[in-house]
Design a protein around this nucleic acid. Structure first.
Lengths: 126, 126
DNA sequence: AATATTATTGCAACAAAGTCGCAATAATAT
DNA sequence: ATATTATTGCGACTTTGTTGCAATAATATT
């Protein structure tokens, strides 16, 4: 499946770059207008994940967030996104935290996906 | 709102104790039979959370899991559940990991909820 | 430049997770 | 034994996310 460049995809990508935070489908929708199809947004974001351009975080609200994650650029190839994400309960922003976290697993356990999430109040909102 | 003891509640509590892992609504349902009402299960579990008997974790599958968390008994009063949870992608078990994790937040940020989640393969399934 | 190929889109339908209102039931208090 | 009210069960609903299928449009082919 060779990828094609489309308007929708570039718009979403540009938005993610500009945002500098992790965005939910909802945020993308409301930024890019209601004329953009919901299913398409999901498909574009999922495609970005598959291609490793974006990583997916599941929030403690059960929703999916997507981020380019500029903080962990060097690690992107290796697909280890072992950093936390912070969601401000006030303004809703979801950002990558810088530190990489190591969690000791019991013997014989192997990790496939890391999902660290903290919510609270960001600097602006506290 | 004074609490009352009911059959449903004790059943669920007993199940959580026996399980020694975190359970989703679905797991509770399938263990305790289809005759038990879905909404009731959710309400019971939410009540347990409010009462501090159980804590809620949101999985990287977007689902809620509930655990007595025997590992962190001493901490229960303080309501700080800063430990990770591990879900085996094979057998589906969700367990509390022992270690408490400290995540450094940027200046001015305050934490309200911690949700650490790792999925992979447990000892039995790898 | 015109055509063929097929990735992507838009729409509708769907599934699953979770919540809520309301009347019926059943634990506790009187 | 009765009154009070927390809990249950049912149904309806919302939100998130996915999927099938026909239409559209980006690339490859000639």
């Amino acid at each position: 499946m060779k990828r094609r460049t489309t308007a929708t995809q570039t718009e979403i990508l540009t938005l993610l770059e500009a945002a500098n935070t992790a965005l939910s489908h909802e945020m993308v929708q409301s930024e890019l207008g209601a004329n953009m199809d919901r299913a398409t947004i999901y498909r574009v974001l999922n495609r970005f994940c598959e291609d490793g351009r974006v990583h997916r975080i599941v929030g403690d609200d059960g929703k999916q967030y997507f981020a380019l994650c500029l903080n962990c650029g060097e690690l992107r190839e290796s697909h280890t996104h072992n950093h936390f994400h912070f969601r401000c309960l006030e303004c809703g922003k979801v950002e990558c935290l810088k530190h990489d976290i190591k969690v000791p697993l019991p013997d014989g356990y192997t990790s496939e996906r890391f999902n660290g999430f903290i919510s609270g109040r960001c600097k602006n909102c506290s």
